[in-house]
Design a protein around this nucleic acid. Sequence first.
DNA 1: CGGTTGACTGTTT
DNA 2: TAAACAGCCAACC
Length: 111
Amino acid sequence: MSARPRRGDDQRRQRILAVVDSIPRGRVATYGQVAIEAGLARRARLVGTILGHLPPRSPLPWHRVVNAAGTISLRPGAGASLQRRRLEREGVRFTAKGRIDLARYRWRPDV
DNA sequence: CGGTTGACTGTTT
DNA sequence: TAAACAGCCAACC
């Protein structure tokens, strides 16, 4: 009876991915925001960990997730430029310091 | 099985 | 505005 993967873990993962998948084009959400929407408050890091394990060709809009400071968390060389390119192509603008104005682009899901 | 690491964040300096 | 800190916890070694 051991080693059966825990259903709970996989469910949490799926819920996080579902939230990411629902972020509209041209808007962004923070890791913490995704965690809350998925019912996992304060698990921002888990969101990052899971996104980091996505397969390279994932159809998910993972690029619409940024950190609370409005900057890209990926390290240079790990896809950071790809994320920025994708966002800019959707109309999301970056400041000279590489920051996104969250007050303007943050996704606000309808309650 | 314990220690380290990291696509994080809110608070305090 | 920026840096330091503490809390967080799954994945890795």
